[in-house]
């Protein structure tokens, strides 16, 4: 072959290899972060969402699930609204955020510049069951006794819950609605305040996370009424769910991860897969169990529909409560 021929053959060979190379690529480009990922949290170090985010970051780091480091960033303020506003404003594929109930409730009160429609859900991790407990000297042995007393004495029983609009408020409201009674809801600031008020007998009942309450229940310092969840709480199997007692109450806090809504589909898929891997590790399951949370993993496709359902639910309940306040 003369030189020209050789060059042409070489050229064709290279071209063929290149064509093969391109054809053998998967149909859609796989997105991977090439910069550190920020996991945004709306409260300060030590708060519930913060611990949750740090647990996620730790699992990712321990099991090396992501090539880039995942760093937790706290942006507290405005009941998590500042963090969500920051997420929307930055609109970056490298920033995701954890969510809790305030993600749904605060925008419905008009106190937030952002709302769930500004974001795309990535994955849903778990639910926090809520336990309704009674103060240690409570005379009520069953829910029927409590309801009967409440019917005869409207407004007399006091229910302690955190903040003026939360899952606790909704539970109290639903109970009032479905039993036809009037228990007065008194807002407190945190689970510890509620615990202190209960132990001191200053309120009749209150909502707490089962993990916080379980030591005291086992010790006999707190009496239980029911748990607002899908199933009974593992550590306290004698406590019935509201559903078992005939009430349609299973209000729980959802813990999920979101990203700003203009993120491309590949980005969402990447994070969704990442979170799925996190949820499947034994360390994660341990952590959820230790903190009394119930696993309920939904990836980005499944969570989309559930997200809508949860949002509608909150809308209805929050409207009920807000209209009462007028």
């Amino acid at each position: 072959m003369n030189k020209n021929h050789q060059i042409v053959v070489l050229f064709l060979l290279i071209l063929t290899i290149m064509v093969f190379g391109v054809i053998s690529q998967p149909a859609q480009a796989q997105w991977k972060p090439d910069r550190p990922v920020t996991l945004l949290v709306g409260n300060s170090a030590g708060g519930g969402a913060d611990l949750f985010a740090r647990a996620i970051a730790k699992v990712i780091a321990d099991y090396k699930l992501c090539e880039q480091p995942v760093v937790v960033l706290n942006k507290p303020g405005g009941s998590h609204s500042i963090a969500y506003a920051y997420l929307r404003e930055q609109a970056s594929p490298y920033i995701i955020a954890v969510t809790s109930s305030s993600y749904f409730t605060v925008p419905l009160t008009g106190n937030s510049p952002v709302s769930p429609t500004d974001f795309t859900p990535i994955a849903h991790f778990s639910k926090d069951p809520n336990m309704v407990v009674l103060q240690p000297k409570s005379p009520f042995k069953t829910i029927e006794e409590l309801v009967a007393f409440a019917k005869a004495n409207p407004g007399k029983l006091k229910f302690a819950g955190s903040s003026n609009l939360s899952d606790d408020t909704i539970i109290c409201e639903l109970l009032n609605e479905q039993a036809g009674i009037n228990i007065q809801y008194v807002p407190f600031e945190s689970g510890s305040d509620i615990l202190a008020a209960l132990l001191g007998g200053h309120v009749d009942m209150g909502a707490m996370s089962p993990a916080e309450a379980s030591e005291h229940v086992k010790n006999g310092d707190l009496r239980t009424l029911a748990v607002s969840a899908f199933d009974r709480y593992r550590d306290l199997p004698d406590v019935p769910t509201f559903k078992e007692l005939g009430y349609d109450i299973d209000q729980q806090q959802s813990r999920a991860v979101i990203i700003e809504k203009s993120a491309p589909a590949e980005v969402v898929t990447y994070y969704s897969d990442l979170m799925k891997k996190v949820s499947q590790t034994p360390e994660w399951e341990d952590w959820l169990a230790k903190n009394g949370m119930v696993p309920m993993f939904l990836d980005s496709n499944d969570y989309k529909a559930y997200h809508q359902e949860v949002l509608e639910d909150y809308k209805v309940n929050v409207d009920k409560i807000l209209s009462k306040n007028k």
Binding site: G78, S79, T109, N111, S163, N164, L165, P187, E189, N325
Partner: peptide
């Protein structure tokens, strides 16, 4: 700030 009892600003 946000009022604890009424939730208003």
């Amino acid at each position: 700030g946000l009022d604890l009892v009424t939730g208003g600003q």
